[in-house]
Simulated assay, not measured.
Amino acid sequence: MQNALVGQRVLITQSTAFMGPALCEVFSKQGATVIASPDDLADPDAPARVVAAAGPIDVLVANLAFTAPSTPALDVQDAEWRAVFAALVDPLPRLLRAAAPAMVARRSGKLLVIGSASALRGMKRTASYSAARGAQLAWVQAVGVELAPHNVQVNAIAQNFVDNPTYFPPEVQANPRFQERLAREVPLGRLVAAREDAQFAAYLCSPAAGCFVGQVFPVCGGWVGR
């Protein structure tokens, strides 16, 4: 895939976290004009402000990050629940309200949510985080079919065990216990490279991927469903 995004203006949110650095690099190499916004979007006014500052865009990549709490389910308090949803879920409808009307008006546009596969498999001590990531995917499925008749494609990547600085920093990857976990849980035997994931995201945001609507694509090294 070469120059798949030439002529496309792409806004990537939280560009310094999670998959942001890899997305910005790969999308730029694919010819996109990348508008990289490092802003946190938990503030209710932030999504509209970020979209307005970006100017006209063809693609919005909702890359939202939050350090996953490891609280046992019985100990999850309201403050934690609200904080996780404020960071990962609440920005989505705000981003949509800010960016989608112009896409609908011109009958062209894409929104890709970079989500997590934690919603696709039960994992201990991740109740609040998994619930928020699951809400992202449900939102994508619903909004995707609603906007499809307007030729606006909304999809998501649900990933885990993908190299990124937020969830798998170097010190985590160097830990022998984590290496044992990779060998035990991931048939691939390694993390998915950030570039591999970002290239798939670039494809989904390209004109070649106009047939996918409301879809959730797992990128997880092969463990979903096992």
Rank of each mutant, 00 (worst) to 15 (best):
Leu111Trp: 05
Glu185Cys: 10
Gln153Tyr: 07
Ala202Glu: 02
Val154Phe: 07
Pro170Leu: 13
Leu95Phe: 06
Pro207Trp: 01
Arg184Leu: 13
Asn175Glu: 06
Glu180Phe: 10
Met123Gly: 12
Gln179Ser: 04
Arg133Ile: 01
Arg195Asp: 09
Gln153Arg: 11
Ala83His: 10
Ser118Arg: 03
Leu204Glu: 05
Leu96Tyr: 13
Ala148Asn: 02
Ala135Arg: 06
Gln141Lys: 12
Asp75Lys: 13
Pro207Lys: 00
Ala132Cys: 10
Val143Gly: 01
Glu185Gly: 08
Tyr167Met: 14
Phe200Leu: 15
Ala135Pro: 09
Ala148Gly: 04
Leu147His: 06
Gly109Arg: 01
Phe178Tyr: 01
Leu96Ala: 14
Ala73Ser: 14
Leu111Thr: 09
Val186Glu: 07
Tyr129Leu: 00
Arg190Trp: 01
Ala193Asn: 12
Ala138Trp: 01
Gly144Glu: 00
Phe161Asn: 05
Ala148Phe: 05
Gln173Ala: 02
Pro187Val: 02
Gln173Trp: 03
Pro176Arg: 05
Ala86Met: 10
Arg125Phe: 14
Leu120Gln: 06
Val140His: 00
Asp163Lys: 14
Val76Lys: 08
Glu171Ala: 13
Arg133Glu: 02
Ala73Ile: 14
Arg97Glu: 15
Thr71Ser: 09
Glu80Trp: 02
Val192Tyr: 07
Ser118Ala: 15
Gly115Cys: 05
Leu95Ala: 06
Gly115Pro: 03
Ala194Asn: 04
Val154His: 07
Val113Lys: 09
Ala131Thr: 10
Val154Thr: 12
Asp78Trp: 15
Trp139Ser: 01
Ala156Asn: 03
Asn175Thr: 08
Glu80Leu: 03
Leu120Tyr: 02
Pro170Asp: 15
Asp197Trp: 10
Leu182Cys: 13
Ser128Gly: 13
Pro149Asp: 04
Val104Gly: 07
Arg94Gln: 10
Val89Ser: 01
Ala135Glu: 08
Tyr129Trp: 04
Gln136Arg: 08
Leu95Ser: 04
Gly134Glu: 08
Val186Cys: 06
Ala119Pro: 02
Ala83Asn: 12
Gln136Phe: 04
